[in-house]
């Protein structure tokens, strides 16, 4: 209970601070954020968009781990966790895509540019979509759990190929080149702290939501079994 309040407080703080702190050319006060040429106020998206994209990946890995666990012990509870994580992952994936493309509209002039990172999130979206399409197409519970775990693993081992493939295809527009230029992070300490706090906040948010979802699904299942 207190944990939940704390998490709410934490994220509200991150959001307020991330939006309110002024951006200046020469940060002097502790609350000043540095100006990234070409990004200006639009740089603030880093506090929200990047954590969402991170949670999308984290959710996929979580789903994958529970999928592997299911295959090794055939415990249906692992499938429930795997599917719940994937459900949240899909949600965060949509959010990251929408925030990203809104930002792209204002910065690059169009909603979608097939930048390597946009393509990666698009592929993740496709994988999540395929995962749920498969789940809804299989009737037997155990079979559904097995097949979706296997599919997640296959997707998990082929997806990293994009890291090698993408740079060969299209050059990047993505601003991590501007903010993280040649290995040197041009965030000042304030910006970095807000960013990391946001990352931590979103990560906790994901695990809290996962826990909630898993418990809700378990209850629903119990209810369904009683009804039979």
């Amino acid at each position: 209970m207190t944990l939940k309040l704390l998490l709410g407080l934490w994220l509200s703080l991150v959001i307020i601070v991330g939006i309110a702190f002024p951006i200046t050319v020469n940060p002097t006060n502790w609350y000043d954020l540095p100006l990234v040429p070409g990004l200006e106020d639009k740089a603030r998206i880093i506090f929200f968009h990047v954590p969402m994209a991170w949670v999308t990946t984290l959710a996929f890995i979580t789903s994958l781990i529970f999928g592997i666990k299911f295959l090794s012990n055939k415990n249906m509870d692992n499938d429930l966790k795997s599917a719940s994580a994937a459900g949240l992952g899909l949600m965060f994936c949509v959010l990251a895509t929408v925030t990203g493309s809104l930002w792209a509209k204002f910065n690059w002039g169009s909603f979608w540019n097939w930048d390597p990172r946009e393509t990666s999130i698009f592929v993740l979206l496709l994988i999540y979509g395929a995962y749920f399409a498969l789940r809804s197409a299989v009737e037997g519970e155990e079979k559904r759990a097995t097949l979706s775990a296997v599919y997640a693993i296959i997707a998990g081992v082929t997806a990293p190929f994009f890291i090698f493939v993408m740079p060969r295809m299209i050059e990047g527009l993505h601003p991590n080149e501007a903010i993280v230029s040649s290995g040197k992070i041009s965030m000042n300490p304030t910006m970095l702290i807000i960013f990391l706090s946001s990352l931590a906040g979103f990560t906790s948010l994901f695990f809290w939501m996962l826990n909630l979802k898993v418990r809700a699904e378990r209850l629903e299942l119990k209810h369904y079994l009683k009804g039979e």
Binding site: V123, L126, I127, G129, A130, A133, L134, A137, V138, E139, K143, L147, Y151, I154, A155, T158, A159, F161, F162, F164, V165
Partner: peptide, 20 residues
């Protein structure tokens, strides 16, 4: 092993085969 096979095939294959 799935109940609806036709449309599912490209849907599942595409993300896997895209890097290739």
């Amino acid at each position: 092993k799935a109940n609806t096979k036709g449309t599912l095939y490209p849907v599942l294959s595409f993300p896997i085969l895209l890097p290739l």
